[in-house]
Design a protein around this nucleic acid. Structure first.
Lengths: 185, 185
DNA sequence: ATCACATATTAGATTGATCTTATATATTGG
DNA sequence: CCAATATATAAGATCAATCTAATATGTGAT
């Protein structure tokens, strides 16, 4: 499971609580691995049972107690093992592609409208990416070195590059449809 | 759920059994929506309960009976409704990106090895795409018009385009690492 | 004064996807 | 002759992800 290893990755920087981890996920890797609060807590419990993390209970008077999770040597070992393991190629499910696959059943105008809405969403997505580096820089405690920062930024670059490339492809397709080049029958 | 609508899309060509549909999925849209046999049968049962399909039992003597699923007017209506509905943007989960995100913990050599293996898999993937059009052409009964064929091919073009674009990006990154341009600390 | 929000964890329920197993028979290949 | 593969459906189990709700309190905004 990847969630476990993402958590190990963060705990390898320093100890965090489940609540901290939820915030970190939401401000960093949510774009390629969103995580549910409940699932983070449950996964932490499993990781504790597996001996990958130790729990330190921090008493608080005005707030509920926090459980700080510390990575163990076994956890560090598991993280390294996973990081160097090539992943089996998992297919990226895409409901959009199903719509494309059966788009012949729609009129040219409907298809054009669909693709134009998609292009608009992709352009909006590109603008969102511009805001992320500032978000990450606002959390300097999460990153500890230029080397780490390089790879954090790399995940963003991949996202931007893929989006841009797909947008160019889509815009060419839209032009093609506008020129009436779809088979009519 | 997208699986339901993919099934409706195929049943809108002609009636099929669950067994047929599994084969069709595996030879056409598996690349962006793999489907489990068991799940297809269960989904067909739900679709029947929802009134989207009718079941015609075909007695066979030497083989188990087949259940041929026929799309109903309600099913056709639901298919059209879904095809013109813009989808909520779902994040593409990517375990590979988690590995990139925490790659700073590995040595330059380990990172290079990882990326080179990924590039090799992508090149192998590109070669696989070359074989797919022939597979589809081998199943002419699934497609009924040049218009449908155009969109079938379009889903392949998107896949090839994305793969190629990501491969170029990755090759540039590998060159950068070879030139020793990763931050060392 | 009240309402929303932040802190902090956990349990319950459901869904979609996946894997395994069961059943029963015909054909094909070694 | 035996093993594997194809035809055909379905139940059982599990897992990861998601949504909702419960609990309890402090702070800031309207």
């Amino acid at each position: 499971m990847s969630l476990e290893h993402a958590i190990l990755g963060f705990l390898n920087y320093r100890p965090y609580s489940g609540y901290d981890l939820k915030k970190i996920f939401d401000t960093s890797i949510r774009h390629f691995w969103p995580a549910d609060r409940s699932q983070i807590y449950r996964t932490l419990a499993q990781m504790s049972a597996a001996g990958w993390v130790d729990i330190e209970v921090v008493r608080q008077e005005t707030r509920p107690d926090r459980k700080m999770y510390h990575i163990t040597p076994a956890g560090k070992h598991e993280l390294r093992r996973w990081l160097v393991t090539p992943l089996l190629p998992e297919p990226n499910r895409s409901a959009e592609m199903i719509q494309v696959f059966f788009a012949a059943q729609l009129s040219d105008e409907e298809i054009l409208g669909m693709f134009e809405r998609t292009a608009a969403m992709m352009r909006a997505g590109l603008e969102q990416y511009d805001c992320i580096p500032r978000q990450i820089e606002a959390y300097p405690e999460y990153t500890t070195s230029p080397r780490e920062f390089f790879f954090w930024m790399l995940t963003l670059d991949v996202g931007v590059h893929t989006l841009k490339s797909n947008l160019v492809f889509l815009e060419e397709l839209i032009e093609k449809i506008r020129r009436g080049e779809l088979p009519k029958h």
